[in-house]
Nucleic acid binder design. Structure first.
Length: 291
DNA sequence: CAAGTGCCTTTATC
DNA sequence: AGATAAAGGCACT
């Protein structure tokens, strides 16, 4: 199946899948292969033509954020030359609508890890606990269900390379399996309430909560603050935050909770209701810059 | 090539 | 309240 992208609907498949918001996609030849919930499908982009197999039109449009009005979003977040430069470079990068459960586990695993290592951990989890799902002559696995992860041992998680995150994933999986926590229900809440609920989970702090909200709960105002975004703010937005805060955060590796909240609030106030889009463009721009 | 640093941080403990 | 340390191990330089 195909979708033709109009000029008013910019999309860049490579930027969208390479910017570090999702970790389980795999490019083979010019096709991207992905597993979303129970479904394996492939997709490729040639210019303004988006071609895919084994998925329907509506799903693709929703999952890849093609229903977001990007020109409108750009006009709202283009507050200065730095964000404008990032947008110019990666125009068409979109926020995905990931499966909330997979997104939650992904970002619990992602704490204090680099992206290649995160990909490896999640692949290990899928291979060990997911269901086989062959497609196009390749072997794929679905992301493990809450029930399957709730039954897994800590040792098995450690074997997947999770390290100290093993107990967080285990306890969170148990809560979801037992119905104490339902990631899908977060969509019914507003930003503050959904964030508060996420923070009750072990291994979920402010950063992880904001990532889950942005990448799977359609809270486009969420503004995750990691080391890269901290760097961007120090470099380009120092005059927008108190100098005391800049001094505090500049020479420390990690940031305290209160500092996180201040930087997060800056992002949301400064960029507005689509701050999450601004975050992802700035993040990807900063990470791909050669230093 | 070895060793050091960094990693889309959270939690426990002062 | 606020600072500090500890927690896998992989990837990159």
């Amino acid at each position: 199946m195909k979708i033709w992208l109009s000029p008013s609907c910019p999309f860049n498949l490579d930027s969208t899948l390479c910017c570090g918001q999702v970790f389980t996609w795999d490019k083979r030849g010019d096709w991207w292969y992905g597993v979303v919930e129970e479904n394996v499908f492939k997709i490729r982009q040639v210019g303004d033509e988006l071609e895919f197999e084994n998925a329907d039109d509506g799903f693709v449009k929703n999952y890849f954020g093609l229903l977001d009005n990007l020109p409108r979003i750009f006009s709202q977040i283009s507050k200065d030359k730095h964000i404008k430069r990032a947008i110019e470079k990666f125009k068409g990068l979109r926020i995905l609508r990931q499966d909330p459960w997979e997104c939650l586990i992904s970002y619990i695993c992602a704490t204090y890890k680099n992206i290649p290592a995160i990909k490896q951990m999640l692949l290990n989890l899928s291979k060990k606990f997911g269901d086989k799902s062959p497609f196009d002559g390749y072997s794929f696995q679905t992301f493990p269900t809450p029930t399957r992860l709730a039954k897994a041992s800590l040792k098995e998680f450690v074997e997947c390379g999770l390290g100290y995150r093993a107990k967080y994933v285990s306890e969170t999986a148990k809560k979801v399996h037992e119905g104490i926590f339902n990631p899908g229900n977060l969509k019914r809440r507003n930003y503050e309430k959904a964030r508060h609920e996420l923070l009750t989970l072990p291994g979920v702090g402010l950063k992880v909560a904001d990532c889950v909200l942005l990448f799977s709960i359609e809270q486009l105002e969420a503004f995750p603050v990691d080391v890269w975004i901290k760097r961007v703010i120090l470099k380009h937005y120092a005059n927008h935050v108190p100098t005391a805060l800049i001094r505090k955060t500049s020479d420390k590796k990690s940031i305290a909770k209160s500092e996180y909240e201040k930087l997060n609030l800056f992002g949301r106030k400064y960029f507005g209701e689509y701050a999450g889009y601004a975050q992802e463009y700035l993040y990807h721009h900063e990470r791909t810059q050669s230093h």
